[in-house]
Each structure stands twice: as C-alpha cells, then as structure tokens.
C-alpha cells in the first residue's frame, strides 16, 4: 500500500543509506545490487512499484518473470496489513505459475540477535523462523505524524539494512539448493522503529504467512 516504505527499503538496500525525504513512486522504479551467495555473485534486480491502488493496473504487467516478491506493510497501519491478501492474489496470479512459497520475516533489531542470525542463516531459513526486517524510518516519519521521535541507534540501522540482504541471500540459497522452481515471497513489516505505535502484532503476521505458505 501507499507509504509503507517500499522505496525507502529499496534505497536502503541499493545505496546503503536511509532516505529521509523519499518521494513517492509513480509507476515503477528499479534498483540493482550485486550480492554474494556462497561464493557466487548474483545480480539482484528489484522492482519497486507504486502503492496506490489504481497503479496496480500499470505495475502488475511487471510481475511476470519475477523470481520472488517482497510484500511490505506498515506495522503501525492495520489497513496496509489487511490489504496483503489482495496483493498476494495478484502476486500469485501474475507471476510464475509455480507454487509460491511464503515466508514471514521477523528481524528484531538488536545487534546481538543480528549476530546470532548471521551465524545460523541456514537454520533460520529451513525452519522458517520469522524475521522482520526493519527499515528505519525514524525521525522523519515520526516527526511527520506529529508524535515524539523514537531514536534508533546507528548500529541498529546498519543491522536493519544488512538483514534485508541476508534474507534475500537466504532466499536465493534456498532456491538454488531446492528444486529452483519456486518463487519466494517475503513479508516485511516495515517501520519497526515505530514499535510503540504498532497496530499489527508479529504473531498475526506470522499466522498470515503460515496460512499462506
């Protein structure tokens, strides 16, 4: 949906920087980054689509040929979570006809947990331990909504960025070791820094992922 932070996540991922005044996307944007997965360099192309409902007519023609999808919602706005199923329908319907596997990602933002996760990625993946990736829309978004800012430490920011990469790598690893035919969809509850205003609990998001997985 609109304003959940899709472009911000993409910018984080490709530029490794947080973009405070991120303009909204018209149509489709695009980003690339080369990541290394088990010694192999993989060029990821990520398409970033406009969130407003009417742009679906335009963006869904770009679903074809996708190897996977990231579905993003805003943990502080329940409506964005409620719309996931309709986005999922489009994703399943218009991407690769093969089964779509579903995974929810919960990444708690402490440096320690991040370290643990990095050490045991395969286990996390195979057990589908949910990991929520946070993009750190801290001061700007919070400021915009008129509530008090929740400061994030710089270390957690970095962890958040890296975790997205890790998760994507995990997905790729799984893809190649597996049949290689399945598309992967990740669910991302964005704006983890606004945990105090959380409107969608991690548990229900996990349930959504499990039920659709």
């Amino acid at each position: 949906d609109m304003g959940v932070g899709k472009s911000c996540l993409l910018h984080q991922f490709t530029e490794k920087k947080f973009m405070a005044d991120c303009p909204h996307t018209i149509g489709v944007e695009f980003g690339t980054r080369i990541i290394e997965v088990s010694g192999q360099k993989i060029k990821l192309q990520i398409w970033d689509t406009a969130g407003q409902e009417r742009f679906r007519a335009v963006t869904r023609s770009y679903y074809r040929g996708a190897a996977g999808a990231l579905m993003v919602y805003d943990i502080t706005r329940r409506s964005t979570y409620n719309h996931l199923s309709s986005w999922l329908t489009d994703a399943r319907n218009l991407t690769n006809p093969n089964t779509v596997k579903f995974s929810i990602n919960k990444y708690t933002i402490t440096g320690e947990q991040y370290r643990v996760m990095k050490e045991i990625p395969a286990v996390i993946w195979s057990h589908m331990v949910p990991v929520q990736v946070v993009a750190e829309l801290t001061v700007s978004t919070v400021g915009n909504t008129g509530t008090s800012p929740v400061p994030l430490e710089s270390s957690t920011r970095t962890a958040g960025v890296l975790s997205l990469e890790d998760i994507l790598s995990l997905g790729k690893t799984d893809n190649s070791s597996d049949s290689g035919e399945e598309d992967v969809i990740f669910l991302i509850g964005n704006k983890g820094d606004l945990d105090a205003q959380r409107d969608v609990t991690y548990e229900e998001a996990k349930q959504f992922a499990d039920e659709n997985g």
Partner: peptide, 23 residues
C-alpha cells in the same frame, strides 16, 4: 484472470479471506 483465480481459490477454504474486512 484475476476473477477466475479468486473464484478457484474460493472453492478451497481461503485462509486470507477475512483479512480484507477493514479495507
């Protein structure tokens, strides 16, 4: 295509059917 897909899915129990309520 979309409608066809939705109706096929409606024939099997659809776990995410209720999450559209608030929309």
């Amino acid at each position: 295509i979309r409608k066809g897909f939705v109706s096929v899915r409606k024939n099997i129990p659809d776990p995410d059917a209720e999450s559209d309520e608030d929309s």
